[in-house]
Design a binder for these strands. Sequence first.
DNA 1: TTCAATTCCTACTGTTTTAGTCTGAATTAA
DNA 2: TTAATTCAGACTAAAACAGTAGGAATTGAA
Lengths: 141, 141
Amino acid sequence: MKLTTRGRYAVMAMADLALFKDKGPTSLTDISLRQNISLAYLEQIFIKLKNKNLVRSVRGAKGGYVLQNSPDEIKISNIISAVDEEIKMLNCKKESKKGCNNKSTKCITHNLWDQLDQHINNFFEKVKLEDLVRKNQTLNK
Amino acid sequence: MKLTTRGRYAVMAMADLALFKDKGPTSLTDISLRQNISLAYLEQIFIKLKNKNLVRSVRGAKGGYVLQNSPDEIKISNIISAVDEEIKMLNCKKESKKGCNNKSTKCITHNLWDQLDQHINNFFEKVKLEDLVRKNQTLNK
DNA sequence: TTCAATTCCTACTGTTTTAGTCTGAATTAA
DNA sequence: TTAATTCAGACTAAAACAGTAGGAATTGAA
């Protein structure tokens, strides 16, 4: 799991979409203004979200994007991996090509990174878009 | 917690040091050969480890580096943060300067990243250098 | 005393990633 | 027809990353 601001923007945008999901398609212009993210950058991000079937697009005037599933079905992990590609953050690629088999001193840290990666993935697997939106609403009270 | 190969190299090198700690100072040349990390790069990394008092240096011929504490007292988190500087991986800096107070939609993801960061820190807090070395030894059986 | 092994110090560099920008085309509601 | 939108792809500035290079200082051993 790679973690960049692009991933964070994606989560913010999807949360925004969730908040306004009852008002028809949400345009990127709106999200751009509300979340203060450059429109052109959002466009790039949404192409990826669309390709991964997380959102559906409505073209033309009054168009925008709509969530493909309900917020309680969308995992944060899906959003992040949609825009940030790679799942593994630090792996043993080099060593594994040279025959890393978990038995050499070189790969003494192999398991450690593996476990951490599982940890992070697990964390984002548990959190749904719905959780963020709910949290935001209570915070706004 | 930022996670790069530099941090991983640092952990590998420290683990190597732990494995050979009974044989006097370990030279970077040795570590370089055993762990297959460039000597010059190791030098840079060890300057930082030394500045953070994780290792002690012995200059001159037959010199090298020695762990400052016993492996069961050295947390992985200390090693990584020593060489990778930053603790926070993704924060709300921009927004916080503009008055992010956890109440705005903009910072809807604020808590999420905070929690994740705690998660990761917590993970590396629990693991000690000793754990890696022990694991390596059993794996070598 | 000399030499080789070592740490120490600092500057430089090539590559990749990141976070965008820019331009323009296609689509469609009003 | 027009304005609002998505779609597409090339381009770019800056930073980070991983590593190189060159040499100075220190010190154990021959």
